[in-house]
Design a protein around this nucleic acid. Structure first.
Lengths: 159, 159
DNA sequence: CTATAAAAGTTTCCATGTCAACCAAATATT
DNA sequence: AATATTTGGTTGACATGGAAACTTTTATAG
């Protein structure tokens, strides 16, 4: 509330330097991502989960028995990170881990009843919180954002 | 390339469960944020910077003498994090730190010539890399994304 | 004009994400 | 068939981001 008066420095007004569109988009995404990660971590923590752990659990619940490889590719997680998260979730008995029958390298992950239980509770909180954050967008804008982010995210996969 | 054949499991096709728009947006933003953070970290690292350190340096270069408080608010960084980053940047002599004359609690940060030098180089690499990632969007889509993300990001500030 | 509260930064502790090196199973090569 | 390469997953070292407690300066109260 006092920034303006405190420093009439014309320095601030020097060309906001719109900076190329692409750079700006990346910077905005980084900013939003960082903030949401913090916020969603707090939400999930109420259920004994970190945000990333919830994402993994969510993926397992929604997309059935899935391998760590596929998980990593879908969520764009580092594979070592996936491995650790899987360990934590399976220690808590929220997921089951079995070796794939046809390929001894693959581990197939599936949810347990307890896993579904926490997933449901956490998902509800997650959604409530998300709604609060996204409420500034109109329905139309929201749909639009989804379309654009999906396009981007798909491009990330192979770079 | 072989995912499809390897697992014809109909489990995967069970209702993609579109999940509410808001949740989906948050999840997409988290995903993009995580990925870009990793990618941009690598880019910046070539110049001895982490992505977040670059963001701070960038803010200081563009928006003149600024306090840690303002920095944190603008970038949505935790204040402890800002403090550490400022330390690192000032140790490398890329920024100057002085106590504000009218308020002994505030520290005013400004860039050094060396700071500007690395900033320029890093910014160029940052932009090149960003362009690669964002190239899937048309000019129109890019402008649109910026508008929407800015709206979101502004809403985050006060939650 | 002291005493209390608030604000800006700092420090500490902890969890965790990343990278690189590694292991084991499966493919490819000869 | 035997070896080499690739692939999925694990492990360990390391740095770092976040929450909370703490210090110091400023603002408020009585």
């Amino acid at each position: 509330m006092k920034n303006k008066n405190q420093k009439p420095a014309n320095r601030n007004e020097k060309n906001p330097l719109p900076s190329e569109n692409e750079t700006q988009i990346v910077q905005l995404l980084l900013k939003c991502g960082l903030f949401l990660q913090r916020a969603m971590n707090q939400v999930c923590q109420r259920f004994g989960l970190k945000q990333q752990q919830f994402s993994v659990l969510n993926e397992i619940v929604l997309h059935g028995p899935i391998s760590q490889k596929d998980l990593g590719e879908k969520l764009l997680f580092e594979k070592s990170n996936v491995s650790k998260i899987v360990n934590i979730l399976s220690e808590k008995k929220w997921i089951r881990v079995v070796v794939a029958p046809h390929d001894g390298r693959l581990t197939l992950l599936s949810e347990t009843p307890e896993g579904i239980a926490v997933w449901k509770k956490c998902m509800q909180a997650f959604h409530e919180s998300s709604s609060k954050f996204i409420s500034v967008l109109s329905e139309y804008e929201a749909v639009n954002v989804i379309k654009l982010l999906k396009k981007l995210q798909k491009a990330f996969k192979r770079k």
